[in-house]
Amino acid sequence: MNGQIALMLGQDGMTSGAIYALLALSIILVFSVTRILLVPQGEFVTFSALTMAAMQSGRPVRLGVLVFGLALVALAMDIVAERQRHRRWTVPRTSLALAAHGLFVVGLGLSVPFDHLGLLVQIGFALLTVVPLGPLIYRVFFQPIASAPSLVLLMVAIAVHVALIGGGLLIFGPEGARTEPFSDSVVQLGPAIIASQTLWVIGVSAALTVALWLFFETSLWGKALRAAAFNRLGAELVGISPVFAGRTSMTLAALIGAVSGIVVAPITTIYYDSGFLISLKGFVGAIIGAMSSYPVAALGALMVGQAESFSTFWASSYKEIIVFTLLLPVLLWRSLRQPSVGDDE
């Protein structure tokens, strides 16, 4: 290996590490607020990447059908819940708005020729389609069992992931897809030649991290989420509803996943089932951060990116094994630091 190759591998690792770091942040966010280990996080990434690819190749965007379908189920669940609580028929406005939005993205997705419109329009529409999946998935699958043991939440998360994979196959088909890079230029940085898409990934990840930090530090919603993560019951007592906290954190998770999918799609070929491996590497980062520390998790995820990239060079067929075996020493270290008996639940 010479310096040139090392630089290239480091660059690759940095790119994927930045994505894993974003996912790790989002996984920790959802876990600390709702206790859900969001295994379907990766599906937000693949769905937005494949939606971009569909638009660029002039195919209709069918993901809206899923959004609309889930929105209808959510609407029905909300109406029934209202009926049981207040003994009268009302239509909750938020779920009606989501259903209307679903209809809107179905209509636009099936009729508008997005390949003739600019990149920004495509990105905007991909976000409009994928991000609502976050709150909808929370409403339909998790909200009815929000207080169940975390093991049950994990199993539901896995089940949702499996169902979404099947849905992804149905919607996008089995072919992999790659999108056009945002720009073709390359940047010379000292001895390294860096593709501009790499800079896009790193820049967008950094910007999103800063935006999240500002959101949690300065906005009322961000502070409410932090309160819910710190002490769920206490937050509920001061008026932060767990439904609000769950829905908001899932919306953020979907946003983070969708943005990651859009920036990463020009670099890697994405298949309908690529999300699992991607989100698992986010999970490795999150575990390194003990499911609670954002900076440690982000750092861990960057390391995962490097480990993956360099093991591709030295032992490419063992790449995945090396990455997941990294978990063992981390878990061992955590295990040794653990007090002998903690009381769970």
């Binding site: 699958f141 539901v156 089940a159 994979i165």
Partner: peptide, 17 residues
């Protein structure tokens, strides 16, 4: 395609709920 995963995934959600 392995579309049965959709059915099983949704069945599990309903069972757990």
């Amino acid at each position: 395609g392995n579309f049965e995963t959709i059915v099983f995934g949704l069945a599990i959600v309903v069972i757990l709920q």
